[in-house]
């Protein structure tokens, strides 16, 4: 019942928003400056039909998955090592703290020089943006693992990789999942800028391309697609989180 009520409120708000937008678009009277919601819906339909919308969304999503996967495979082990061992922390802390404040987006010009225009540039920028939240979150999560758990497992002769797999990783998982969500969000923000400047395909490229063609309704359709996909990836990760560790409800922000 509460859900139905929530849906109704949602629809009402969005309907009022669409009406206000429609009214404003009539007032402005220019489909270049402010196309009506109907025109944008039509643009969504058309770019869905000719496959442009899904093709570019698929390309951007594939880049996201690749970049985040590489980031997770490198950053999580490094974070675990930094969380567990002082030597690793000493070795990498300064480097991480030096590179982390340099936004991934600030690498775009240098990456243009190194990689040129293509898929490698957005993937690198997205990897870089995802890497640091993951390293820092994992290291903090591992350091916060209850010392008694580590002591108990050591007493029982559980050490090395076994200890990491069966004690450290499960205990730090909630923190790692939170940082994964931050990493995906950061990565998804970076994709638009990276593709806008340095890729021949993807959602960021499409937005810029249709802007230069002065096709404002299509630009808005692609912007909406970015929002929808950003929302869906986060919702997916939330669901994964709830599935993986139903006990950690209170740790989630």
């Amino acid at each position: 019942m509460a859900r139905v009520g929530g849906l109704l409120v949602y629809l009402r708000t969005m309907a009022i928003f669409a009406l206000a937008w429609y009214g404003l678009s009539l007032l402005v009277g220019s489909r270049l400056l402010l196309p009506s919601p109907l025109l944008v819906l039509d643009a969504v339909r058309q770019s869905a039909l000719d496959g442009e919308l899904l093709r570019n969304a698929g390309i951007s999503l594939l880049r996201l998955v690749l970049a985040v996967a590489v980031a997770a495979l490198t950053a999580i082990p490094l974070g675990i090592a930094m969380g567990l061992s002082r030597a690793w922390r000493d070795a990498f802390d300064l480097l991480v703290e030096m590179l982390r404040p340099v936004a991934g987006i600030a690498w775009i010009p240098l990456a243009l020089f190194i990689f040129g225009i293509g898929s490698r540039l957005p993937i690198f920028i997205m990897f870089y943006s995802a890497f640091f939240p993951l390293v820092i979150g994992t290291a903090a999560g591992v350091r916060n693992v209850d010392a008694r758990l580590l002591a108990a497992s050591a007493t029982m002769g559980v050490t090395g990789v076994t200890r990491i797999r069966h004690v450290v990783l499960p205990a730090a998982l909630p923190a790692i999942m939170v940082s994964l969500r931050l990493a995906v969000a950061a990565s998804w923000t970076a994709v638009v800028a990276a593709e806008l400047v340095g890729a021949p395909s993807g959602l960021g490229y499409a937005i810029e391309y249709y802007r230069s063609m002065l096709a404002t309704p299509t630009v808005m359709a692609f912007i909406a697609m970015i929002g929808v996909l950003g929302f869906l990836t986060d919702a997916g990760l939330r669901a994964l989180e709830a599935r993986l560790m139903p006990w950690a409800k209170d740790i989630r922000p």
Partner: peptide, 17 residues
């Protein structure tokens, strides 16, 4: 609903508009 609809849209995506 409005906040949740616009929040996932990165600032750089609205740059063309």
């Amino acid at each position: 609903p409005l906040v949740e609809s616009f929040r996932p849209i990165a600032a750089i995506a609205i740059l063309p508009l």
